[in-house]
Design a binder for these strands. Structure first.
Ligand SMILES: NC(=O)c1ccc[n+]([C@@H]2O[C@H](COP(=O)([O-])OP(=O)(O)OC[C@H]3O[C@@H](n4cnc5c(N)ncnc54)[C@H](O)[C@@H]3O)[C@@H](O)[C@H]2O)c1
Ligand SMILES: NC(=O)c1ccc[n+]([C@@H]2O[C@H](COP(=O)([O-])OP(=O)(O)OC[C@H]3O[C@@H](n4cnc5c(N)ncnc54)[C@H](O)[C@@H]3O)[C@@H](O)[C@H]2O)c1
Lengths: 209, 209
DNA sequence: TTTGTATTGTTAGTTTATTAACAATAAAAC
DNA sequence: GTTTTATTGTTAATAAACTAACAATACAAA
Protein backbone atom coordinates (compact mmCIF):
# COMPACT_ATOMS: atom_id res chain seq x y z
CA UNK A 1 0.00 0.00 0.00
CA UNK A 2 1.06 3.55 -0.67
CA UNK A 3 2.52 5.31 2.32
CA UNK A 4 -0.22 6.89 4.41
CA UNK A 5 -0.23 10.49 5.61
CA UNK A 6 1.19 10.90 9.06
CA UNK A 7 -2.02 12.26 10.48
CA UNK A 8 -4.01 9.41 9.03
CA UNK A 9 -1.78 6.86 10.75
CA UNK A 10 -2.29 8.69 14.00
CA UNK A 11 -6.03 8.67 13.55
CA UNK A 12 -6.11 5.01 12.56
CA UNK A 13 -4.64 4.25 15.95
CA UNK A 14 -7.34 6.34 17.58
CA UNK A 15 -10.05 4.72 15.50
CA UNK A 16 -8.90 1.33 16.62
CA UNK A 17 -8.94 2.36 20.23
CA UNK A 18 -12.51 3.57 19.88
CA UNK A 19 -13.56 0.55 17.83
CA UNK A 20 -12.21 -1.85 20.42
CA UNK A 21 -14.44 -0.20 22.99
CA UNK A 22 -17.38 -0.56 20.59
CA UNK A 23 -16.61 -4.20 20.06
CA UNK A 24 -16.52 -4.78 23.80
CA UNK A 25 -20.03 -3.31 23.88
CA UNK A 26 -21.13 -5.81 21.21
CA UNK A 27 -21.68 -3.14 18.61
CA UNK A 28 -21.24 -4.71 15.18
CA UNK A 29 -21.53 -1.65 12.94
CA UNK A 30 -20.66 2.02 13.26
CA UNK A 31 -21.45 5.10 11.17
CA UNK A 32 -18.82 7.61 10.17
CA UNK A 33 -20.44 10.28 12.32
CA UNK A 34 -20.45 8.03 15.36
CA UNK A 35 -16.79 7.20 15.04
CA UNK A 36 -16.04 10.86 14.39
CA UNK A 37 -17.90 11.92 17.53
CA UNK A 38 -15.87 9.58 19.69
CA UNK A 39 -12.64 11.27 18.80
CA UNK A 40 -13.92 14.76 18.14
CA UNK A 41 -13.31 15.08 14.45
CA UNK A 42 -15.61 15.36 11.43
CA UNK A 43 -17.35 12.46 9.69
CA UNK A 44 -15.82 13.49 6.38
CA UNK A 45 -12.39 12.99 7.77
CA UNK A 46 -13.29 9.52 8.95
CA UNK A 47 -14.67 8.57 5.56
CA UNK A 48 -11.64 9.97 3.82
CA UNK A 49 -9.21 8.07 6.02
CA UNK A 50 -11.17 4.89 5.52
CA UNK A 51 -11.13 5.46 1.80
CA UNK A 52 -7.36 5.87 1.94
CA UNK A 53 -6.91 2.47 3.50
CA UNK A 54 -9.13 0.95 0.84
CA UNK A 55 -12.01 -0.19 2.98
CA UNK A 56 -15.63 0.27 2.08
CA UNK A 57 -18.56 0.18 4.42
CA UNK A 58 -22.15 -0.67 3.72
CA UNK A 59 -24.50 2.07 2.69
CA UNK A 60 -26.92 3.01 5.45
CA UNK A 61 -25.39 0.40 7.71
CA UNK A 62 -21.97 1.85 8.32
CA UNK A 63 -18.66 0.10 8.82
CA UNK A 64 -18.26 -3.39 10.16
CA UNK A 65 -16.47 -2.97 13.48
CA UNK A 66 -14.66 -6.31 13.34
CA UNK A 67 -13.49 -5.90 9.79
CA UNK A 68 -12.24 -2.39 10.38
CA UNK A 69 -10.34 -3.35 13.52
CA UNK A 70 -8.74 -6.18 11.64
CA UNK A 71 -7.80 -4.07 8.63
CA UNK A 72 -6.27 -1.33 10.77
CA UNK A 73 -4.28 -4.07 12.45
CA UNK A 74 -2.95 -5.30 9.13
CA UNK A 75 -1.85 -1.76 8.29
CA UNK A 76 -0.31 -0.63 11.54
CA UNK A 77 0.92 -3.89 12.99
CA UNK A 78 3.55 -6.14 11.57
CA UNK A 79 2.83 -9.79 10.87
CA UNK A 80 5.26 -11.10 13.42
CA UNK A 81 4.89 -8.25 15.92
CA UNK A 82 7.34 -5.74 17.32
CA UNK A 83 8.91 -5.80 20.72
CA UNK A 84 9.16 -2.82 22.99
CA UNK A 85 11.14 -2.02 26.13
CA UNK A 86 10.79 0.63 28.80
CA UNK A 87 13.95 2.22 30.14
CA UNK A 88 13.60 3.76 33.59
CA UNK A 89 11.01 2.26 35.93
CA UNK A 90 9.85 5.28 37.90
CA UNK A 91 6.26 6.42 38.25
CA UNK A 92 5.92 7.17 34.57
CA UNK A 93 7.54 3.98 33.35
CA UNK A 94 5.32 1.89 35.61
CA UNK A 95 2.20 3.76 34.53
CA UNK A 96 3.03 3.06 30.91
CA UNK A 97 3.70 -0.63 31.46
CA UNK A 98 0.44 -1.05 33.29
CA UNK A 99 -1.44 0.88 30.64
CA UNK A 100 -0.13 -1.40 27.89
CA UNK A 101 -0.78 -4.61 29.70
CA UNK A 102 -2.75 -6.94 27.50
CA UNK A 103 -3.80 -4.16 25.14
CA UNK A 104 -2.03 -5.38 22.01
CA UNK A 105 -0.72 -8.67 20.76
CA UNK A 106 1.47 -7.31 17.98
CA UNK A 107 3.22 -4.66 20.01
CA UNK A 108 4.34 -6.00 23.32
CA UNK A 109 6.51 -4.66 26.10
CA UNK A 110 8.85 -7.54 26.88
CA UNK A 111 11.55 -5.90 28.98
CA UNK A 112 12.20 -3.06 31.36
CA UNK A 113 15.52 -1.62 32.47
CA UNK A 114 16.62 0.35 35.49
CA UNK A 115 19.83 1.38 37.21
CA UNK A 116 18.43 0.93 40.69
CA UNK A 117 19.38 -2.55 42.00
CA UNK A 118 16.20 -2.67 44.09
CA UNK A 119 14.01 -2.49 41.04
CA UNK A 120 16.02 -4.83 38.92
CA UNK A 121 14.81 -8.03 40.48
CA UNK A 122 11.16 -7.15 40.22
CA UNK A 123 8.52 -7.90 37.64
CA UNK A 124 6.18 -5.02 36.82
CA UNK A 125 2.76 -5.97 35.51
CA UNK A 126 4.33 -9.06 34.04
CA UNK A 127 7.38 -7.33 32.58
CA UNK A 128 10.77 -8.32 34.05
CA UNK A 129 13.21 -5.55 34.89
CA UNK A 130 16.86 -5.98 33.90
CA UNK A 131 19.89 -3.98 35.02
CA UNK A 132 20.71 -1.16 32.65
CA UNK A 133 24.12 -2.58 31.83
CA UNK A 134 22.44 -5.57 30.19
CA UNK A 135 20.55 -3.25 27.87
CA UNK A 136 22.39 -4.11 24.72
CA UNK A 137 22.43 -7.85 25.35
CA UNK A 138 18.76 -8.15 26.18
CA UNK A 139 17.66 -5.93 23.30
CA UNK A 140 19.59 -8.01 20.83
CA UNK A 141 18.58 -11.32 22.35
CA UNK A 142 14.89 -10.47 22.35
CA UNK A 143 14.93 -8.57 19.08
CA UNK A 144 13.45 -5.43 20.63
CA UNK A 145 13.08 -2.61 18.13
CA UNK A 146 11.34 0.20 20.00
CA UNK A 147 12.25 1.82 23.31
CA UNK A 148 10.27 4.05 25.62
CA UNK A 149 12.59 6.35 27.50
CA UNK A 150 11.56 7.38 31.00
CA UNK A 151 14.85 7.86 32.81
CA UNK A 152 15.77 11.10 34.59
CA UNK A 153 16.60 13.88 32.15
CA UNK A 154 20.27 14.04 33.13
CA UNK A 155 21.07 10.58 31.83
CA UNK A 156 18.69 10.54 28.86
CA UNK A 157 21.21 11.58 26.22
CA UNK A 158 23.68 8.88 27.24
CA UNK A 159 21.04 6.18 27.40
CA UNK A 160 19.75 7.32 24.01
CA UNK A 161 23.19 6.70 22.50
CA UNK A 162 23.31 3.23 23.99
CA UNK A 163 19.87 2.41 22.67
CA UNK A 164 20.92 3.32 19.17
CA UNK A 165 24.06 1.30 19.46
CA UNK A 166 21.98 -1.66 20.54
CA UNK A 167 20.06 -1.48 17.28
CA UNK A 168 16.85 0.21 18.41
CA UNK A 169 14.86 1.57 15.47
CA UNK A 170 12.48 3.91 17.25
CA UNK A 171 12.58 5.82 20.54
CA UNK A 172 9.68 7.43 22.33
CA UNK A 173 11.38 10.01 24.48
CA UNK A 174 9.39 11.22 27.44
CA UNK A 175 12.29 12.96 29.12
CA UNK A 176 12.71 16.71 28.70
CA UNK A 177 16.20 16.23 27.28
CA UNK A 178 16.71 16.63 23.52
CA UNK A 179 18.08 13.41 22.06
CA UNK A 180 20.75 13.26 19.44
CA UNK A 181 20.05 10.26 17.27
CA UNK A 182 20.85 9.37 13.71
CA UNK A 183 18.63 10.21 10.78
CA UNK A 184 17.04 6.80 10.41
CA UNK A 185 15.98 6.25 13.99
CA UNK A 186 12.39 7.29 14.49
CA UNK A 187 11.94 9.76 17.31
CA UNK A 188 8.63 10.31 19.03
CA UNK A 189 7.23 11.52 22.30
CA UNK A 190 5.58 14.60 23.62
CA UNK A 191 5.63 16.81 26.62
CA UNK A 192 2.77 17.10 29.06
CA UNK A 193 3.75 20.68 29.84
CA UNK A 194 3.33 21.48 26.17
CA UNK A 195 -0.16 19.95 26.20
CA UNK A 196 -0.98 22.06 29.21
CA UNK A 197 0.44 25.24 27.78
CA UNK A 198 -1.56 24.77 24.61
CA UNK A 199 -4.65 24.45 26.77
CA UNK A 200 -3.63 27.55 28.69
CA UNK A 201 -3.18 29.56 25.51
CA UNK A 202 -6.61 28.48 24.34
CA UNK A 203 -8.26 29.34 27.64
CA UNK A 204 -6.53 32.70 27.64
CA UNK A 205 -7.43 33.58 24.04
CA UNK A 206 -11.00 32.51 24.61
CA UNK A 207 -11.37 34.72 27.62
CA UNK A 208 -10.11 37.77 25.76
CA UNK A 209 -12.76 37.41 23.09
CA UNK B 1 -1.76 39.95 18.87
CA UNK B 2 -3.39 37.99 16.10
CA UNK B 3 -4.20 34.41 16.98
CA UNK B 4 -1.21 32.17 16.40
CA UNK B 5 -1.31 28.93 14.44
CA UNK B 6 -1.87 25.92 16.59
CA UNK B 7 1.43 24.36 15.67
CA UNK B 8 3.30 27.54 16.40
CA UNK B 9 1.88 27.66 19.92
CA UNK B 10 2.98 24.10 20.42
CA UNK B 11 6.48 24.89 19.23
CA UNK B 12 6.71 28.03 21.34
CA UNK B 13 6.24 25.82 24.36
CA UNK B 14 9.00 23.54 23.12
CA UNK B 15 11.28 26.49 22.38
CA UNK B 16 10.83 27.73 25.89
CA UNK B 17 11.66 24.33 27.33
CA UNK B 18 14.86 24.24 25.31
CA UNK B 19 15.69 27.87 26.06
CA UNK B 20 15.32 27.34 29.79
CA UNK B 21 17.92 24.60 29.55
CA UNK B 22 20.20 26.98 27.63
CA UNK B 23 19.73 29.67 30.23
CA UNK B 24 20.63 27.21 32.97
CA UNK B 25 23.87 26.64 31.06
CA UNK B 26 24.53 30.39 31.00
CA UNK B 27 24.10 30.66 27.29
CA UNK B 28 23.01 34.20 26.44
CA UNK B 29 22.37 33.92 22.71
CA UNK B 30 21.22 31.18 20.38
CA UNK B 31 21.09 30.83 16.59
CA UNK B 32 18.04 29.61 14.76
CA UNK B 33 19.82 26.46 13.67
CA UNK B 34 20.87 25.66 17.22
CA UNK B 35 17.35 26.00 18.56
CA UNK B 36 16.07 24.01 15.60
CA UNK B 37 18.53 21.20 16.26
CA UNK B 38 17.37 20.88 19.85
CA UNK B 39 13.85 20.06 18.84
CA UNK B 40 14.52 18.42 15.50
CA UNK B 41 12.96 20.91 13.15
CA UNK B 42 14.40 23.24 10.52
CA UNK B 43 15.97 26.64 11.20
CA UNK B 44 13.53 28.27 8.78
CA UNK B 45 10.65 27.13 10.87
CA UNK B 46 12.20 28.61 13.97
CA UNK B 47 12.77 31.94 12.25
CA UNK B 48 9.26 31.97 10.89
CA UNK B 49 7.69 31.28 14.26
CA UNK B 50 9.81 33.97 15.83
CA UNK B 51 8.77 36.37 13.11
CA UNK B 52 5.13 35.55 13.85
CA UNK B 53 5.47 36.56 17.47
CA UNK B 54 7.13 39.79 16.42
CA UNK B 55 10.56 39.27 17.86
CA UNK B 56 13.76 40.08 16.06
CA UNK B 57 17.18 38.72 16.83
CA UNK B 58 20.54 40.23 16.16
CA UNK B 59 22.22 39.52 12.89
CA UNK B 60 25.13 37.11 13.26
CA UNK B 61 24.54 36.94 16.99
CA UNK B 62 21.24 35.14 17.13
CA UNK B 63 18.39 35.50 19.59
CA UNK B 64 18.72 36.73 23.13
CA UNK B 65 17.81 33.78 25.30
CA UNK B 66 16.41 35.83 28.17
CA UNK B 67 14.32 38.09 25.97
CA UNK B 68 12.89 35.21 24.02
CA UNK B 69 11.94 33.26 27.13
CA UNK B 70 10.26 36.31 28.51
CA UNK B 71 8.38 37.07 25.30
CA UNK B 72 7.13 33.51 24.95
CA UNK B 73 5.95 33.81 28.53
CA UNK B 74 3.96 36.95 27.73
CA UNK B 75 2.31 35.14 24.84
CA UNK B 76 1.51 31.79 26.37
CA UNK B 77 1.06 32.66 30.02
CA UNK B 78 -1.56 34.89 31.50
CA UNK B 79 -0.63 37.89 33.62
CA UNK B 80 -2.15 36.52 36.78
CA UNK B 81 -1.52 32.84 36.08
CA UNK B 82 -3.81 29.86 35.67
CA UNK B 83 -4.46 27.15 38.18
CA UNK B 84 -4.47 23.48 37.39
CA UNK B 85 -5.68 20.39 39.20
CA UNK B 86 -4.99 16.69 38.76
CA UNK B 87 -7.87 14.29 39.17
CA UNK B 88 -6.85 10.73 40.03
CA UNK B 89 -3.60 10.26 41.94
CA UNK B 90 -2.34 6.95 40.57
CA UNK B 91 1.07 6.38 39.03
CA UNK B 92 0.39 8.69 36.14
CA UNK B 93 -1.10 11.49 38.22
CA UNK B 94 1.84 11.41 40.59
CA UNK B 95 4.36 11.37 37.74
CA UNK B 96 2.74 14.45 36.27
CA UNK B 97 2.64 16.35 39.55
CA UNK B 98 6.29 15.62 40.16
CA UNK B 99 7.21 16.58 36.64
CA UNK B 100 5.55 19.97 36.99
CA UNK B 101 6.98 20.77 40.35
CA UNK B 102 8.61 24.20 40.26
CA UNK B 103 8.69 24.26 36.48
CA UNK B 104 6.35 27.21 35.91
CA UNK B 105 5.14 30.13 37.94
CA UNK B 106 2.18 31.08 35.78
CA UNK B 107 0.71 27.61 35.46
CA UNK B 108 0.61 25.87 38.79
CA UNK B 109 -0.93 22.66 40.02
CA UNK B 110 -2.65 23.66 43.23
CA UNK B 111 -4.91 20.72 43.96
CA UNK B 112 -5.26 17.00 43.44
CA UNK B 113 -8.35 14.83 43.87
CA UNK B 114 -8.89 11.16 44.50
CA UNK B 115 -11.63 8.81 45.59
CA UNK B 116 -9.37 6.65 47.70
CA UNK B 117 -9.54 7.80 51.36
CA UNK B 118 -5.95 6.68 51.92
CA UNK B 119 -4.65 9.12 49.37
CA UNK B 120 -6.84 11.99 50.36
CA UNK B 121 -4.93 13.03 53.41
CA UNK B 122 -1.58 13.11 51.67
CA UNK B 123 0.40 15.84 49.99
CA UNK B 124 2.12 14.87 46.74
CA UNK B 125 5.18 16.89 45.80
CA UNK B 126 3.65 19.82 47.62
CA UNK B 127 0.16 19.41 46.20
CA UNK B 128 -2.61 18.56 48.68
CA UNK B 129 -5.08 15.84 47.72
CA UNK B 130 -8.77 16.43 48.36
CA UNK B 131 -11.64 13.93 48.30
CA UNK B 132 -13.37 13.78 44.95
CA UNK B 133 -16.68 14.94 46.36
CA UNK B 134 -15.12 18.29 47.18
CA UNK B 135 -14.14 18.75 43.55
CA UNK B 136 -16.61 21.46 42.72
CA UNK B 137 -16.08 23.41 45.93
CA UNK B 138 -12.29 23.42 45.73
CA UNK B 139 -12.20 24.27 42.04
CA UNK B 140 -14.44 27.27 42.57
CA UNK B 141 -12.70 28.39 45.73
CA UNK B 142 -9.26 28.27 44.18
CA UNK B 143 -10.34 29.49 40.77
CA UNK B 144 -8.89 26.47 38.98
CA UNK B 145 -9.47 26.56 35.24
CA UNK B 146 -7.66 23.53 33.84
CA UNK B 147 -7.90 19.88 34.88
CA UNK B 148 -5.67 16.93 34.11
CA UNK B 149 -7.71 13.75 34.10
CA UNK B 150 -5.95 10.58 35.21
CA UNK B 151 -8.71 8.52 36.78
CA UNK B 152 -9.53 4.97 35.66
CA UNK B 153 -11.26 4.90 32.29
CA UNK B 154 -14.55 3.62 33.68
CA UNK B 155 -15.26 6.75 35.69
CA UNK B 156 -13.70 9.28 33.31
CA UNK B 157 -16.91 10.29 31.55
CA UNK B 158 -18.71 10.99 34.81
CA UNK B 159 -15.83 12.94 36.30
CA UNK B 160 -15.57 14.90 33.03
CA UNK B 161 -19.18 16.03 33.44
CA UNK B 162 -18.53 17.13 36.99
CA UNK B 163 -15.47 19.07 35.93
CA UNK B 164 -17.43 20.99 33.38
CA UNK B 165 -20.16 21.71 35.85
CA UNK B 166 -17.54 23.06 38.22
CA UNK B 167 -16.55 25.64 35.61
CA UNK B 168 -13.36 24.07 34.24
CA UNK B 169 -12.34 25.62 30.91
CA UNK B 170 -9.87 23.04 29.65
CA UNK B 171 -9.39 19.32 30.24
CA UNK B 172 -6.32 17.26 29.42
CA UNK B 173 -7.74 13.79 29.22
CA UNK B 174 -5.20 11.01 29.61
CA UNK B 175 -7.77 8.29 30.05
CA UNK B 176 -8.72 6.13 27.08
CA UNK B 177 -12.37 7.09 27.44
CA UNK B 178 -13.84 9.59 24.98
CA UNK B 179 -15.15 12.62 26.83
CA UNK B 180 -18.35 14.38 26.01
CA UNK B 181 -17.87 18.05 26.78
CA UNK B 182 -19.43 21.20 25.47
CA UNK B 183 -18.14 23.11 22.48
CA UNK B 184 -16.27 25.79 24.42
CA UNK B 185 -14.32 23.57 26.76
CA UNK B 186 -10.86 22.94 25.39
CA UNK B 187 -10.02 19.28 25.15
CA UNK B 188 -6.46 18.00 24.96
CA UNK B 189 -4.52 14.88 25.74
CA UNK B 190 -2.55 12.21 24.09
CA UNK B 191 -2.41 8.46 24.01
CA UNK B 192 0.88 6.74 24.51
CA UNK B 193 -0.28 3.74 22.55
CA UNK B 194 -0.90 6.04 19.60
CA UNK B 195 2.66 7.38 19.90
CA UNK B 196 3.94 3.84 19.94
CA UNK B 197 1.83 2.71 17.04
CA UNK B 198 3.04 5.63 14.96
CA UNK B 199 6.58 4.57 15.75
CA UNK B 200 5.73 0.99 14.85
CA UNK B 201 4.26 2.02 11.52
CA UNK B 202 7.39 3.98 10.75
CA UNK B 203 9.71 1.15 11.72
CA UNK B 204 7.64 -1.25 9.64
CA UNK B 205 7.51 0.98 6.54
CA UNK B 206 11.21 1.66 6.80
CA UNK B 207 12.06 -1.99 6.88
CA UNK B 208 10.03 -2.74 3.79
CA UNK B 209 11.97 -0.23 1.75
C1' DT C 1 39.15 49.21 2.78
C1' DT C 2 37.26 45.50 0.34
C1' DT C 3 35.66 40.98 0.00
C1' DG C 4 33.63 37.00 1.75
C1' DT C 5 30.67 34.63 5.05
C1' DA C 6 27.08 33.73 8.24
C1' DT C 7 22.81 34.75 9.66
C1' DT C 8 18.35 37.04 9.98
C1' DG C 9 13.64 38.34 8.16
C1' DT C 10 10.40 37.73 4.73
C1' DT C 11 8.15 36.56 0.49
C1' DA C 12 6.59 33.33 -2.67
C1' DG C 13 5.99 28.56 -3.70
C1' DT C 14 4.89 23.84 -2.48
C1' DT C 15 3.13 20.32 -0.10
C1' DT C 16 0.02 18.36 3.21
C1' DA C 17 -4.33 18.37 5.53
C1' DT C 18 -9.05 19.55 5.96
C1' DT C 19 -13.57 20.72 4.37
C1' DA C 20 -17.30 21.19 1.11
C1' DA C 21 -20.06 19.31 -2.27
C1' DC C 22 -22.46 15.97 -4.47
C1' DA C 23 -23.50 11.68 -7.18
C1' DA C 24 -24.85 7.08 -6.02
C1' DT C 25 -27.91 4.18 -3.71
C1' DA C 26 -29.90 1.13 -0.01
C1' DA C 27 -33.35 1.27 3.21
C1' DA C 28 -37.41 3.31 5.11
C1' DA C 29 -41.66 5.67 4.67
C1' DC C 30 -45.59 6.34 2.41
C1' DG D 1 -44.34 0.93 -6.20
C1' DT D 2 -42.79 5.52 -5.58
C1' DT D 3 -40.75 8.99 -2.90
C1' DT D 4 -37.92 10.45 0.75
C1' DT D 5 -34.06 10.05 3.71
C1' DA D 6 -29.64 8.71 5.35
C1' DT D 7 -25.32 7.48 4.32
C1' DT D 8 -21.21 6.30 1.71
C1' DG D 9 -17.26 7.28 -1.53
C1' DT D 10 -14.98 10.57 -4.11
C1' DT D 11 -13.64 14.67 -6.35
C1' DA D 12 -12.81 19.43 -6.17
C1' DA D 13 -11.85 23.51 -3.37
C1' DT D 14 -9.85 25.66 0.56
C1' DA D 15 -6.87 26.20 4.29
C1' DA D 16 -2.87 25.25 7.04
C1' DA D 17 1.79 24.07 7.42
C1' DC D 18 6.17 23.84 5.75
C1' DT D 19 10.17 24.84 2.66
C1' DA D 20 13.00 27.22 -0.62
C1' DA D 21 14.93 31.24 -1.92
C1' DC D 22 16.97 35.36 -1.39
C1' DA D 23 17.74 40.34 -0.13
C1' DA D 24 19.80 42.67 3.65
C1' DT D 25 23.58 43.27 6.54
C1' DA D 26 26.84 42.74 10.45
C1' DC D 27 31.08 40.87 11.29
C1' DA D 28 35.48 38.64 10.08
C1' DA D 29 39.18 38.01 7.10
C1' DA D 30 42.17 39.58 3.75
N1 LIG E 1 7.08 14.02 28.85
C1 LIG E 1 6.36 14.24 29.91
O1 LIG E 1 5.32 14.83 29.79
C2 LIG E 1 6.84 13.78 31.25
C3 LIG E 1 5.97 13.65 32.33
C4 LIG E 1 6.45 13.16 33.53
C5 LIG E 1 7.79 12.85 33.65
N2 LIG E 1 8.60 13.01 32.59
C6 LIG E 1 10.02 12.64 32.62
O2 LIG E 1 10.08 11.23 32.58
C7 LIG E 1 11.20 10.78 33.31
C8 LIG E 1 10.77 9.80 34.38
O3 LIG E 1 9.84 10.39 35.26
P1 LIG E 1 9.46 9.68 36.61
O4 LIG E 1 8.50 10.54 37.33
O5 LIG E 1 9.06 8.30 36.34
O6 LIG E 1 10.87 9.73 37.35
P2 LIG E 1 11.46 8.73 38.45
O7 LIG E 1 12.60 9.42 39.08
O8 LIG E 1 10.35 8.22 39.28
O9 LIG E 1 12.01 7.50 37.59
C9 LIG E 1 13.25 7.44 36.97
C10 LIG E 1 13.72 6.01 37.00
O10 LIG E 1 14.89 5.91 36.18
C11 LIG E 1 15.85 5.12 36.88
N3 LIG E 1 17.19 5.47 36.40
C12 LIG E 1 18.02 6.45 36.82
N4 LIG E 1 19.15 6.47 36.10
C13 LIG E 1 19.03 5.46 35.20
C14 LIG E 1 19.88 4.97 34.18
N5 LIG E 1 21.07 5.53 33.91
N6 LIG E 1 19.45 3.94 33.45
C15 LIG E 1 18.25 3.37 33.70
N7 LIG E 1 17.41 3.79 34.64
C16 LIG E 1 17.80 4.84 35.38
C17 LIG E 1 15.63 5.42 38.33
O11 LIG E 1 16.12 4.36 39.13
C18 LIG E 1 14.12 5.54 38.40
O12 LIG E 1 13.52 4.31 38.64
C19 LIG E 1 11.87 12.02 33.85
O13 LIG E 1 12.89 12.40 32.95
C20 LIG E 1 10.77 13.04 33.84
O14 LIG E 1 11.26 14.35 33.70
C21 LIG E 1 8.13 13.45 31.40
N1 LIG F 1 -2.93 8.47 27.81
C1 LIG F 1 -2.00 7.61 28.11
O1 LIG F 1 -1.10 7.43 27.35
C2 LIG F 1 -2.06 6.84 29.39
C3 LIG F 1 -0.94 6.22 29.93
C4 LIG F 1 -1.06 5.57 31.14
C5 LIG F 1 -2.28 5.53 31.79
N2 LIG F 1 -3.36 6.12 31.22
C6 LIG F 1 -4.66 6.16 31.87
O2 LIG F 1 -4.57 7.10 32.92
C7 LIG F 1 -5.41 6.71 34.00
C8 LIG F 1 -4.60 6.58 35.26
O3 LIG F 1 -3.57 5.64 35.11
P1 LIG F 1 -2.77 5.13 36.39
O4 LIG F 1 -1.79 4.14 35.92
O5 LIG F 1 -2.29 6.29 37.17
O6 LIG F 1 -3.95 4.38 37.16
P2 LIG F 1 -4.13 4.15 38.71
O7 LIG F 1 -5.16 3.10 38.87
O8 LIG F 1 -2.80 3.98 39.35
O9 LIG F 1 -4.73 5.54 39.26
C9 LIG F 1 -6.06 5.88 39.22
C10 LIG F 1 -6.37 6.73 40.45
O10 LIG F 1 -7.67 7.28 40.32
C11 LIG F 1 -8.33 7.14 41.58
N3 LIG F 1 -9.77 7.13 41.35
C12 LIG F 1 -10.57 6.06 41.08
N4 LIG F 1 -11.85 6.46 40.92
C13 LIG F 1 -11.85 7.80 41.10
C14 LIG F 1 -12.86 8.78 41.05
N5 LIG F 1 -14.13 8.49 40.78
N6 LIG F 1 -12.51 10.06 41.29
C15 LIG F 1 -11.24 10.38 41.54
N7 LIG F 1 -10.23 9.49 41.59
C16 LIG F 1 -10.54 8.21 41.37
C17 LIG F 1 -7.79 5.87 42.17
O11 LIG F 1 -7.93 5.91 43.58
C18 LIG F 1 -6.34 5.93 41.74
O12 LIG F 1 -5.56 6.61 42.68
C19 LIG F 1 -6.05 5.40 33.55
O13 LIG F 1 -7.30 5.71 32.97
C20 LIG F 1 -5.12 4.89 32.49
O14 LIG F 1 -5.78 4.10 31.54
C21 LIG F 1 -3.25 6.77 30.04
Amino acid sequence: MKILPDKTVERLSQYRRALLICRAENKTHIFSHELAGLIHITPVQVRRDIMLIGYTGTLRKGYDVHELISLIGRIIDTEEGLRVCVVGIGDLGRAIIRYFKGKRTKLVITAAFDANPEKVKCVYSGVPCYPIDQLETVIKEQGISIAILTVPGEVAATVGQTLEKAGIKGIINYTPTPLNVSENTYLGGYDMITSLEKAAYFVKSNREM
